[in-house]
């Protein structure tokens, strides 16, 4: 099984730091006080890597994602995507939020094609791709349905298609499945794993579910509460293609326990810098804690 870790050492610098965050800080003004949401965040994401950002609620994970998306500005520090600093929404970024935000008066197909429609781009360019995406997430036959006729999980599937419509280089996901019930959430995790098999995009996935992070990601960044920093950078040892059966493995449970311990202790290991190398080597895990 090929893992990203072994390729990382040989990859050119630009591919390695496809997303590069350096010393990012975010300070909010709340009334007459200022609140430091993010403090000295540093990490890299290589091209094609799926990185999960894991942490308790309200620890600034979403803020970090918004900064990568160009929807918020860092108070200090830099966020780079593909070598250039992020100043605004990046044209080749697909985004998913916790709220699928489907427009209620549009059909599933129209919602998927919304990114093209809102920029006045011709439908014909994207129609085939939209249909393909809809089929891929299992919504074939629902193209003419309206959001109110769909379940929560189905709406998020439409949101996935919409995010992938323009074949973005990067996919950012802010707790997309947190509002779903447990069973639907598992289904959606499977859908995402399947998609990953075909698309293998660079991805940042924010979650507060340890299980989800380990299941989906190649690397997990653990963040603390405010002021938030990255306190751990754990490589996930399972390869691709992956399916739900990895949950049954003892390695999975150990890794989850390890992450849980880090979150509970608040600081866990000290903040790691990029280039420090993976914490867990493939094939060598467990028995260390």
């Amino acid at each position: 099984m090929d893992t990203i870790a072994t390729n990382l050492a040989e990859a050119p610098d630009i591919d390695r730091g496809f997303i590069r965050v350096r010393n990012a800080r975010k300070i909010y003004a709340a009334g007459d006080k200022s609140v430091e949401a993010l403090s000295e965040v540093n990490f890299d994401v290589a091209r094609g890597e799926f990185v999960a950002i894991l942490g308790p609620s309200g620890c600034g994970k979403s803020t970090l994602l918004m900064m990568c998306a160009g929807l918020e500005e860092a108070t200090s520090g830099t966020v780079e995507v593909a070598g250039s600093t992020v100043t605004g929404p990046h044209p080749s970024i697909g985004i998913m939020f916790q709220d699928p935000t489907l427009l209620p008066w549009k059909t599933v197909l129209q919602n998927v094609m919304f990114p093209a429609h809102i920029l006045g781009q011709p439908d014909s360019e994207y129609r085939d791709r939209a249909h393909k995406l809809i089929d891929m997430v299992g919504l074939h036959g629902f193209e003419t349905k309206r959001p109110h006729e769909l379940s929560g999980g189905m709406r998020q599937r439409v949101a996935i298609c919409r995010a992938l419509l323009k074949d973005p280089d990067i996919l950012l996901m802010d707790e997309p499945f947190s509002a779903l019930d447990a069973i639907t959430r598992d289904e959606m995790n499977e859908v995402l794993l399947d998609i990953w098999h075909s698309y293998a995009k660079t991805a940042l996935f924010v979650t507060h579910s340890i299980r989800e992070a380990v299941l989906l990601a190649d690397r997990v960044l653990v963040m603390t509460r405010r002021p938030a920093t990255v306190v751990a950078d754990i490589r996930v040892p399972f390869g691709r293609p992956r399916d739900m059966s990895v949950i049954e493995t003892p390695e999975f449970a150990k890794l989850c326990a390890q992450l849980r311990g880090m979150i509970e202790h608040g600081t866990g290991k000290s903040a790691r810098r990029p280039g420090d190398g993976p914490v867990l080597q493939p094939g060598r895990h467990g028995g260390e804690e």
Binding site: L71, F97, T101, W105, F114
Partner: peptide, 26 residues
């Protein structure tokens, strides 16, 4: 207009007038 919808439009780099016509008005 729901802020989530506006945030979506911002993420898609939509020009203001299009956001107005296609999202705010409906």
């Amino acid at each position: 207009t729901r802020p989530e919808a506006l945030r979506l439009c911002a993420a898609l780099n939509a020009p203001r007038w299009r956001t107005f016509l296609c999202v705010r008005v409906p």
